[in-house]
Amino acid sequence: MANAAKKDKFLLYKGRPMVRCGKTIYYGNMSDKYVVMLQILSTKPFKDMEVPDRVLVQLMDTDPQVRIRDRIVKKTEKDGLYNAIDVGAIWLERALADK
């Protein structure tokens, strides 16, 4: 039972969940109109680990009726994961506020 409750918890950033799958990070609720997809394009070594270097940021519509090609509302490429998450969070806040 304790493990089932732990699996339902996500890492939150500014009150929205972040889910990682390989080199892709999804930020936001899939039940909302928009989410942000962050794709790690390259990494660089830092001490004893690899950290994201170039990150593709895409604001995406979650409507399943929209063609996949048309779901991307905005996109950019940023240096570093923090810069990418910061831009993505701003885009998501603005997009969800314009409902």
Rank of each mutant, 00 (worst) to 15 (best):
A2D: 13
A2I: 11
N3E: 13
N3Y: 07
N3S: 15
A4H: 11
A5G: 08
K6L: 11
K6D: 11
K7W: 06
K7M: 13
D8N: 09
K9P: 00
K9M: 11
K9L: 09
K9G: 05
F10I: 02
L11H: 13
L11Q: 11
L11R: 14
L12D: 09
L12E: 13
L12F: 06
Y13A: 08
K14T: 04
K14L: 08
R16M: 08
R16L: 07
P17K: 01
V19D: 10
V19K: 15
R20N: 12
C21P: 01
G22W: 05
K23V: 04
T24N: 13
T24D: 08
Y27T: 01
N29H: 13
M30W: 15
M30C: 06
S31A: 14
Y34W: 11
V35I: 13
V35L: 06
V36K: 01
M37K: 11
Q39N: 09
Q39R: 08
I40Y: 03
L41F: 03
S42D: 05
T43C: 11
T43G: 15
P45C: 11
K47A: 15
K47L: 14
D48L: 09
M49I: 15
E50D: 15
E50M: 13
V51Q: 12
V51R: 15
V51W: 09
P52F: 01
P52W: 03
D53T: 06
R54G: 05
V55S: 04
V55P: 03
L56Y: 09
V57Y: 00
Q58R: 14
Q58S: 09
L59G: 00
D61K: 04
T62R: 04
T62N: 09
P64R: 04
P64I: 01
Q65N: 14
Q65T: 11
V66Q: 14
V66I: 12
R67Q: 12
R67K: 13
I68G: 12
I68D: 14
I68S: 15
R69W: 05
D70V: 00
D70S: 14
D70Q: 14
R71L: 06
V73R: 05
K74Y: 08
T76H: 03
E77V: 12
K78V: 02
D79T: 10
G80A: 11
L81K: 11
L81Q: 06
N83M: 10
N83F: 02
A84V: 08
I85F: 14
V87Y: 02
G88M: 00
G88H: 01
G88I: 00
A89E: 03
A89C: 06
A89Q: 06
A89N: 06
W91M: 04
L92C: 07
L92M: 12
E93G: 06
R94L: 07
R94M: 12
L96D: 02
L96G: 04
D98R: 10
D98C: 04
K99P: 00
K99F: 03
